[in-house]
């Protein structure tokens, strides 16, 4: 028995050795890579440089004299617009402010309604129901918004030379002195009061309470916005994107910890993703948003201000209620030159 078992064992060992000798090199392991993260369009363009000198321009607007809406200014930019149509730069991806219904092409939101009001003042002789067709909307990714205005300052930027020009930018543009200086913008009277807020998941993983600050957290905001600078000042890691809505994609794909921008835009984000929550009051400052116009088009600035002054009170309240119902909103006071 012992001998037979010995032989069996010997044969088994020999077979194993033979098999091992014939076996090719061990096969490569089955790879188990992790899912690549998609990336938003790269931020690489010129933006307002941090300033070392004090701001020279004025954020004050031009006072309408009250005749714009009864007697259209002739021979200038208003005449050109009446001939070729009104070009309006909108964000197009900000829910409640301006977003495009892709199937119909219609742009909807508070800013789109504002554009229609302005267009009706420019075309008082047209059928009010057909006036929206005279508006050509151009999407303004957050970063490049102000380059689309035809100003002497923008002529200095190479990218601005091959940029289609718009007459008005209504894209939640905060009024800042830097923008006046850098891009040659003239802001209208403000139509919206905003505060920079924070949007993150409804329930973070426990190691972070968004109310306690953003130190060391990656926070996304549109490139070239004041929001981005404030994130850095508050100790957060600023993640710039070309268009603010790319931030929501980044948050949903867990590539950033939070998004920080104007509360009105954040509300639009929360509408689209109920798994998010807004934390207001990250920043104490109150911003105002106004229509941005090229500083050489003074007639247009006055006309827009006339429209806004006409809407102050009832007209604007109706718009606020339509798009931000349940939110207390007041049209900010205007700051006109030569008071």
């Amino acid at each position: 028995m012992t001998t037979r078992r010995g032989w069996t064992r010997l044969i088994a060992v020999a077979a194993t050795v033979a098999v091992a000798a014939c076996t090719p090199a061990p096969r490569a392991e089955v790879p188990r890579p992790s899912a690549p993260q998609p990336q938003p369009p790269a931020v690489e363009a010129a933006q307002a440089q941090p300033r070392t000198v004090a701001c020279k321009g004025s954020t004050a607007s031009l006072r309408p004299d009250g005749t714009e809406l009864t007697k259209l200014p002739r021979g200038g930019v208003i005449d050109q617009i009446r001939q070729r149509g009104l070009r309006v730069g909108v964000s197009q991806t900000a829910g409640r402010l301006s977003s495009r219904n892709l199937r119909t092409g219609a742009v909807e939101g508070l800013e789109a309604d504002l554009a229609i009001e302005i267009a009706r003042a420019i075309y008082p002789d047209r059928d009010p129901a057909k006036v929206p067709d005279l508006i050509q909307y151009v999407a303004m990714p957050t970063r490049d918004r102000f380059l689309a205005l035809n100003t002497a300052e923008n002529g200095k930027y190479p990218p601005a030379t091959n940029v289609a020009k718009v007459d008005l930018i209504i894209a939640d543009a905060s009024v800042t002195c830097e923008r006046v200086d850098t891009f040659g913008v003239r802001f209208s009277a403000p139509y919206l009061q905003t505060r920079q807020g924070l949007l993150t998941y409804r329930g973070t993983l426990g190691d972070w309470d968004p109310r306690t600050g953003i130190t060391g957290r990656t926070v996304c905001a549109g490139a070239g916005t004041i929001n981005l600078d404030r994130i850095t000042k508050l100790g957060g890691i600023a993640v710039p994107v070309v268009d603010t809505t790319d931030c929501l994609v980044q948050l949903q794909r867990h590539q950033v910890d939070a998004v920080s921008t104007d509360d009105v835009i954040l509300e639009g984000f929360r509408d689209q993703d109920p798994n998010t929550e807004i934390f207001p009051g990250v920043v104490d400052t109150v911003d105002v948003a106004a229509v941005a116009i090229a500083n050489r088009d003074e007639d247009l600035v006055r006309l827009v201000n006339a429209v806004l002054e006409r809407m102050r009170g009832q007209g604007m309240t109706r718009l606020y209620d339509k798009w931000f119902s349940g939110r207390a909103m007041v049209m900010p006071p205007a700051d006109y030159e030569g008071r």
């Binding site: 938003p40 197009q92 829910g95 892709l102 809505t245 639009g268 984000f269 689209q272 993703d273």
Partner: peptide, 18 residues
């Protein structure tokens, strides 16, 4: 996009870029 949520455009843009 079918829900008329503007973030749909951002998703399509990022996909196209990729």
């Amino acid at each position: 996009s079918s829900r008329v949520d503007p973030v749909g455009t951002s998703y399509l843009n990022e996909a196209s870029l990729l």
